[in-house]
Design a protein around this nucleic acid. Sequence first.
DNA 1: TCTTGCATTTCAGACGTTCAACATGCAAGG
DNA 2: CCTTGCATGTTGAACGTCTGAAATGCAAGA
Lengths: 302, 302
Amino acid sequence: MSESPTSTVSAIVHALADEVSAGALPAGARLPAQRLADRFGVSRFPVGQALRVLAEHGIVVATPGRGFFVAPEGRLPAAALSGRRKPDGLSAVYFAMAEDRLAGRLPDSISGAALRERYGLSRGQLGQLLDRIAAEGWAERRPGYGWRFSAVLTTPDALEGSYRLRLAIEPASLLEPGYRLDPALAARCRAVEEGMLAGGIERASSDALYERGVRYHEAIVGASGNPFMLEALQRVNRVRRLLVYRTLVDRQRFYRQAREHLAILDLLEAGRREEAAEAMRAHLGAVMESMAAARPLLETGR
Amino acid sequence: MSESPTSTVSAIVHALADEVSAGALPAGARLPAQRLADRFGVSRFPVGQALRVLAEHGIVVATPGRGFFVAPEGRLPAAALSGRRKPDGLSAVYFAMAEDRLAGRLPDSISGAALRERYGLSRGQLGQLLDRIAAEGWAERRPGYGWRFSAVLTTPDALEGSYRLRLAIEPASLLEPGYRLDPALAARCRAVEEGMLAGGIERASSDALYERGVRYHEAIVGASGNPFMLEALQRVNRVRRLLVYRTLVDRQRFYRQAREHLAILDLLEAGRREEAAEAMRAHLGAVMESMAAARPLLETGR
DNA sequence: TCTTGCATTTCAGACGTTCAACATGCAAGG
DNA sequence: CCTTGCATGTTGAACGTCTGAAATGCAAGA
């Protein structure tokens, strides 16, 4: 606990905690470092560190000289650890910047030095951040010095445009030859949606609701096996998050969305893909309409 | 001529050379540095350098103390300069790397140091390159060290998948509300296509043919005003270039393409967008079929 | 033989420095 | 008055160094 785990190590820690917590790794299961290393695509070194961290939390037990095993009473601490991932520090700045920008607190044009000053970033951090933002399309380098924020995202049309792209891609993805929705994945999606209907919508933060929707749609489109379609959707979703932050969410409409998500899953699992595509079209159209109703909120600013 | 022009300066040089060559800037026109600087969004400094370069080429004349003017006989050297842009050094490595990868000369997994060694790159250069490649989706950082090339692009399906994304996006873009094709842009597109039919197809390199097609489609989709659709198309086109390099082009089919391009322009300018969308669908479908016929070539490797 | 634990080697990111390129203010001239 | 030319201040990218982290090889033990 004294050490601050690096990204790789903590990723492994959380992945294993998840599996123990979910019961995928039963108590007493052996955990050979080499096996785990292969699975995560890393060497045994960070795996060993991760196991030591897990041992400190009582999730696994170390038998000196013989290896690591899942602790008999490991599921509880695993569940505790599984929840709280440390938030990326840079992401916080990213959202702060997006918020500042959308609220009009950042000028159209600004130098990198000014941004570093404002957000307290090092050179490298600012570089990463702005590269990411530039890739998402809401800022670009100016010739010469500095950066220019593009006006695209501040217009109310932007959100609508993002939905129209989804309307073009998502139904089409369901009709891709070779479409195959993994049953296990479908079951997980179904469980999430049903959990939402059974009270989850009230409990979840609006951030979590957005995440859930994104994951559902990306899973459905990803099953098409067309990486270009999936990537286009992922990109538009990353930007859409910024826009959605500024709309008030009507929690009621998430019930309808969840039911529609389930209906689409039903159709897909029954192999009725044309109907599923039509349902997806209707679903997105409905979401778009309910969004258009909330549109005045966008224009008033914060 | 002795100096090696920086990117900003050479961009201005070529932009001005283009305008002089096209006759947009008539002989004797005055070229105030401040005006040009505002137009390009930079300061007077690089503009002054660019003007000096143009003076060396005889495209403009400097009247000491009074400023720069387009040279009476400036159009010829301008046309000469307008053609040959200096190719980005990093781009050459990029294509070499793509070529090596698609030909199987690069392993699935490789460390950054090995890549730097192989292509003679500095740390920063390799970073830029791999970030770009990662953004395009054909390589990704491995946890730990090194990079992993994704298998996606080496499969023959990839090219087909890229067309199916375009098939979803492009016709839809023509039906976007607010679609407006700038008449001047339409005229330029038309001129290019007609030039192609009138012998341009035989003269152009296959690289130029690809460029021409991309520009046409991106112009058409860009007129939708939906930045998400345009960006999705641009991204898929960047990757598609790599795949197309490995297919043999049948020059004959470009005649048919050019005619279809013109027919779509006709429909758009007549405001018959639904029909244009349908024609675009048919056009892409035809291209995809002719590509499928060439598919065995992809599988044999170089 | 397979495993862990340790030591060595390799690697890439962070940091600070240097330098070329750009912005800007000012003086001089048409 | 507007323009150019020059001098000064600012910015960001390239380079080299350094440090922490990961890969790898090897020995010991179950």
